[in-house]
């Protein structure tokens, strides 16, 4: 049986209550809005690029604990990363939260984001964990329209 504590880890709860980089970037050159119409989660991700690297990143919006913590920890892990590195990190993250790849030892590159591995036991919450990341992808691609998980 899935354990709630695997999903709501201390780190996740802490980030959801005090999200990092929770701000609009005045100097943003990329931004995108992400929306999960099923639960009403809505986030905007702001990026300031330096060439191919993410110089600064911020987000704003509202959502459940999982989506907010995921957005917060995403911004922490992406500062200074290149586009390609960000994409790779999302792929790994996606693999872990959907339970398609093991998190123990096999994904050291995931770092602190490994706390989200418990999400794989709660299939209805995968979209919460990945919303900020999908929004990031849209921001990097410069997509204008709000992206939706549906």
């Amino acid at each position: 049986m899935a354990d709630l504590r695997d999903l709501y880890q201390e780190v996740i709860l802490e980030h959801s209550k005090a999200p990092r980089n929770y701000r609009e970037l005045k100097a943003a050159d990329h931004k995108a809005e992400g929306f999960n119409p099923l639960c009403g989660d809505r986030f905007t991700v702001f990026l300031e690029m330096d060439g191919d690297s993410i110089k600064d990143i911020g987000f704003q919006g509202s959502g459940c604990a999982i989506s907010k913590a995921s957005a917060s920890m995403m911004t922490q892990s992406l500062k200074g990363k290149t586009r390609k590195e960000a994409e790779e990190l999302f792929n790994r993250f996606h693999g872990v939260v959907t339970g398609q790849s093991a998190e123990n030892g096999d994904e050291p590159a995931l770092g602190k984001l490994a706390v989200f591995s418990g999400v794989s036991e709660f299939p209805t919450r995968v979209k919460c964990a990945t919303l900020a990341w999908h929004t990031l992808t849209a921001a990097l691609e410069g997509t204008q329209e709000a992206i939706s998980t549906e």
């Binding site: 709630l4 709501y8 639960c39 989660d41 959502g63 604990a65 999982i66 209805t124």
Partner: peptide, 11 residues
């Protein structure tokens, strides 16, 4: 207060 309904639903 302080808890999103989606989290309530899961718990």
């Amino acid at each position: 207060e302080g808890v999103h309904p989606h989290d309530i639903g899961t718990i």
